[in-house]
């Protein structure tokens, strides 16, 4: 019974983290592909933002990422109905930070050097301590 509860809790947390990682990496890939949004502005003023907004909203990678983020939102709501917020919030945040760094290195080929791994580790521990 206890093992079942533990398995369910961590499956929910892992599911939320995986969806967040997929969403963030897909959106980051979309934005990297589009390049600096300032350069997509057609002219100065508010009307100039139509170009970047259209480019973002018609990007398949962005739409896939936004879909994953929407699923992540509902998965988080479900998780909060079975797991305490004090565990769910820091656990999903920490797993998402570590997973994002690994996924950015593998899929986005980012240079995740020792400095960035250390930053991820510090953020994870920091988030857990803030939730205490």
């Amino acid at each position: 019974m206890h093992t079942d509860h533990l398995l369910r809790t961590w499956s929910c947390i892992a599911g939320v983290a995986v969806l967040a990682i997929a969403g963030e990496v897909l959106i980051a890939a979309a934005m990297r592909k589009l390049g600096d949004l300032d350069l997509l502005r057609t002219h100065s003023g508010l009307g100039g933002y139509i170009g970047p907004i259209r480019a973002v909203l018609t990007s398949p990678l962005f739409l896939a990422g936004a879909f994953c983020m929407a699923l992540n939102f509902f998965a988080l709501l479900f998780t909060l109905s079975v797991v305490d917020l004090s565990l769910a919030a820091p656990a999903t945040a920490s797993l998402t930070y570590v997973g994002n760094a690994a996924a950015a290195k593998v899929f986005l080929r980012e240079n995740v050097d020792r400095r960035r791994w250390l930053a991820v580790l510090f953020v994870c521990i920091g988030v857990v301590l803030l939730a205490k």
Partner: peptide, 28 residues
Amino acid sequence: LSVYRWTGILLIVCAVGFVAGGPSRTEH
């Protein structure tokens, strides 16, 4: 704010400092 939280704040500030000191973008 407990000592735990102040420590958490300090760690996140350090993390931002580490990353901000490096390059913002990987060239491919």
